[in-house]
Amino acid sequence: MTTMTQTAPLVRVDGVTKRFGSGDKEMVALSGLNLEVREGEFLSLLGPSGCGKSTALNIMGGLLEATEGTVTFSGEQLTEPNRHIGMMFQQAVMFPWRTTLENVLLPVEIFGEKKKDFIPKAEELLEMVGIKDFRDSYPWQLSGGMQQRAALCRVLLHDPKLLLLDEPCGALDEFTRESMNQELLRLQDYAKSTAVLVTHNITEAVFMSDRVAVMSARPGRLVDIIEVPFDRPRRPDLQTTNDFIKLVAKARQMLELQ
């Protein structure tokens, strides 16, 4: 029994198809997606805009219902959002009427728990991402990168088993994006959670992931999965090595071949 749960994937996406609208206006966003996410891994969904990767992520998070097929999380069929799944979006989604700390503690309120019990952990997370001094500042007093760091603290506060990241660095500039990605990797490792990242940035996908699932444009389907063998922790200079560049080229080729 124990060995079974260890080898079973954390998430299993089984023949998931998603159609929006009906009749003439029907749009197939996702077509027969099969995918397994292994416990503890960092997996990227890489593809052009409109390939349904965000749709796939939202289905994995229980925000959207699949038209066909099923998603299994921790061995159980997933039909609605789950406490053990945390989501991050392209925008930080900080409420401007709440301070950084209050924003980080939002899930505590929603779950009906005592805020006091979570303040030390929230502060520890804020310290880890380097914005502890801004705990009482409002989001509009922070830069975009700092807001996204705060959002990361919010999602990690309850130790999610699965992190679903919908281009969380997409709205950030190149430099901020890189340091934010480092932060993501560090904290994913610290929280020992599994992560699925949606991105259209090939380098980012290869750099962050253990496996990259390459997807094709509409209707979205899985092209292939690239294994990324590099050791962790990964340093930015990895990106200049030959092996890395070769993998990026391979992914690019897959995207162009479709």
Binding site: N58, G61, G62, L63, E80, P81, N82, R83, I85, G86, M87, F89, Q90, Q91, V93, F95, W97, L106, P107, E109, I110, F111
Partner: peptide, 26 residues
């Protein structure tokens, strides 16, 4: 309320009432 903010509340399994009080009304 922004769709992303609504999605965040939904991902936290917030009730309709919680989404109303903590997001929509502010």
């Amino acid at each position: 309320a922004e769709p992303n903010a609504v999605a965040l509340m939904k991902s936290l399994r917030a009730s309709k009432w919680q989404t109303m009080v903590k997001l929509r009304i502010p």
